[in-house]
Design a binder for these strands. Structure first.
Lengths: 138, 138
DNA sequence: TATTGTTATACTCTATAACTATA
DNA sequence: TATAGTTATAGAGTATAACAATA
């Protein structure tokens, strides 16, 4: 097959996706990485900051700015771990869950629109392949 | 369908592709964007720097560092345009073409390996969908 | 006056190394 | 001494404005 290289295609599509997400996240007062952190929090239960850094692939020092901002906005709380007081347990607040849910819906709709031009079978294969590639290359 | 968000999947896969490309480009003495510029030069014929900036999506001021480096390495030349002497026409040298071809081969092999785990039909659909999405969202 | 290529400046993002408090 | 979280510093990448040469 003769097509442009993966790096080119992926970076172009990534740019498009980010451009479409930006207004959604702006409306919620979230930066891109803030949203990634919220998403990770919804899945894993009460992680320490170190665990959160590991699951998001974000450096622990860079995570701090995101957490500070999210905490100021009342979307997360940081609590001391009574078992090991060096740890700080991060968790979503009700407000954080609400914002996250609304962003997820908007982003889901955006993605549906973005993929709407594909043949249904191609779209399913695309999503399946993309998921497989990311899982197997961990 | 319930899968991780596109932004997450694409950024993960993009990171993986870049990690696999890096040793190839390092071996050729190329940075990521240098390679993108070489690729663009192979397709479009004798562009000015402004045209090259437009086709790569790179800002004209940021392009300059790439061109300086590539010219120092003898992979491209910049020639004055006799028709409009404000323009500088950029073109690949024989050495540049050689390096580009060898990188393309290595990257093609890397991509084949990366995609090898997919069902053949899924792989074809994935490549088709990715190409369609990038073309239609221009 | 407008445009091409260039340089300069400031701003963001990232990487690294220290520092504190706990263990 | 080792670890979790934090802060500080320097570096890379980026955006913006200004500049010289040419149209």
């Amino acid at each position: 097959m003769d097509r442009p290289e993966l790096g080119y295609l992926l970076s172009r599509l990534m740019r498009e996706v980010m451009a479409r997400e930006k207004p959604i996240l702006d409306g919620a007062g979230l930066e891109m990485w803030d949203y990634a952190v919220l998403t990770a929090l919804a899945d894993s239960d009460a992680p320490t900051q170190a665990q959160l850094a590991a699951t998001t692939g974000r450096d622990k020092t860079r995570l701090i700015g995101n957490l500070d901002r999210l905490e100021t906005q009342g979307m997360i709380v940081r609590q001391a771990d009574s078992a090991d007081r060096r740890n700080r347990i991060v968790s979503l607040t009700a407000a954080g869950s609400r914002v996250l849910r609304s962003c997820r819906e908007a982003i889901g709709a955006m993605e549906a629109e973005l993929l709407a031009g594909l043949e249904p079978a191609d779209r399913a294969a695309f999503e399946r392949a993309l998921t497989d590639l990311v899982v197997t290359d961990r």
